[in-house]
């Protein structure tokens, strides 16, 4: 798919990817490694935040 090689990085603190074309790195991106997400707790936080802004009721209604 497309030109070049897809390179994936994974470390203790970082996650990243790079695209190497003809052996040269043309793009790379690195981010702090996302924490493991707990779907239930995220949804609870979301509902709580949306209620605070009365948005949950608007969207539900």
């Amino acid at each position: 798919m497309g030109m070049g090689e897809d390179v994936r990085f994974l470390g203790q603190d970082l996650i990243g990817s790079a695209l190497a074309v003809e052996g040269e790195t043309v793009h790379a991106a690195f981010f702090p490694k996302p924490a493991e997400e707990n779907r239930q707790s995220l949804e609870q936080m979301l509902k709580s935040k949306m209620r605070a802004g009365n948005l949950w009721e608007k969207m539900s209604g």
Partner: peptide, 8 residues
């Protein structure tokens, strides 16, 4: 970081 090359 550990690196993995993928053949697209």
């Amino acid at each position: 970081c550990k690196e993995e090359n993928l053949n697209r």
